[in-house]
Design a binder for these strands. Sequence first.
RNA 1: GUCCCCAUCGUCUAGAGGCCUAGGACUCCGCCCUUUCAAGGCGGCAACGCGGGUUCGAAUCCCGCUGGGGAUACCA
Length: 403
Amino acid sequence: MSTEIRGPVRVRFAPSPTGFLHVGGARTAIYNDLLRQSAGGAFILRIEDTDRERSDEAMTRQIQSALAWIGTVWDEGPFLQSERLARHRERAEELLAAGKAYRCFCTQEELEAQRAEAQTQGKAFRYPRTCLCRPQDEAQTLLAAGKPFVVRLRMPGDNIRFHDIVRGAMDFPPDALDDFILLRSDGTPTYHMSVVVDDIDMRVTHVIRGEDHLSNTPKHIPLFRALGGEVPAFAHLPLILGPDKKRLSKRYGATSVEEFRNEGILPQALYNFLALLGWNPGDEREVMSRDEMIAAFSVDRLNDSPAVFDREKLWWMNGQYMARLSVEELWPHLEPFIDQAGLKNADRERLLAVLELYRTRTRTLKEMAEAVFPFFQDELVYDSAAVAKYLKDADLPADLEAL
RNA sequence: GUCCCCAUCGUCUAGAGGCCUAGGACUCCGCCCUUUCAAGGCGGCAACGCGGGUUCGAAUCCCGCUGGGGAUACCA
């Protein structure tokens, strides 16, 4: 099914500031960027920092700088979800007043026991609607007594169907869903409540996010409807895997944008590489500028199967960019590595000439700066303590000495 | 456990019933270019997970199996 998107779209990227921007998040941002740029409209950046314990303001800044560095452009935001809590709560209370949501006085211990019970019976746990069935006066008594409660959405009994742009027709039977929590017992909104209210208020038309949210979608759709909001179109992207075919993790090296930057990867190369991990232009082009990708972008060329992150190919891609860019063009990105290599004060003209020699011979900016280092040793002032520490066993192996 | 998703070379992928002797890219291996090493050019190795259907014909459609992943929270 062709789902070419033309009109102005309103997309959003909504990371939670619980760590550095990882490549999976970066790729999601890139597809949002590509859709926004190709179709027109707006890209909204929203920071989902409602989990205050895990959120950190420094992380929020990191994420913004990483997004800007790889070259995504947002039109609105960043909006902090934590600043909209009152609004989320207000909308939940509307649902409560309208009878579309209800108070639940069940304790976590009770629910835990029921969950364990369902587990042993081999069934999926669903909240049994104990409090929905509770007589009105009994609920009033509990409320008056100050018993803590959560607010749950009253789910409709019909199947939830939607068309996912990358996965096609989705159909979730009602017994797979339960009356999930909108407001916690301390009155704060849950993630589900916050996202849906924000997506409505920000008039989001297309939600492009990771596959891990696919099973949240049948929860969100009834909530959109209960709140009287327009249900956006959804596109759930497959995950990025590590070499072990499991979710990409730290144990195989860098996973954050920041780390690749520090390894000397160019932002254009990372953008290009990540865009191609789950999308292709339909012809055999691979090294493509953002503008070329924008021109070629179409959501129906988004892949639906997970991709293994291949570091080797990123390095190749980066080498391609280095080979195509002049040393002058590379310089802004290269300079930090030159400084780091201790060549800050090296003769500029000679430095550029030597760098040119290594432009097609190295694959990262870091390698380039390090390769050039030996040419400037004469100009260096050695730190005597460092010499004592690192250069004391300078004897070469016999076979090397023979050379 | 239950629900959901996915399945083409080692990896990224093209492929929407005949264009497929399955195409491209990374990696690896040759050769050419070159004083050297790269870059570049040319060539090679390498895949439709398995079993049933449907069809004149299936990598492409259906079912099952297997494998992998995700979700099952008063996390996001």
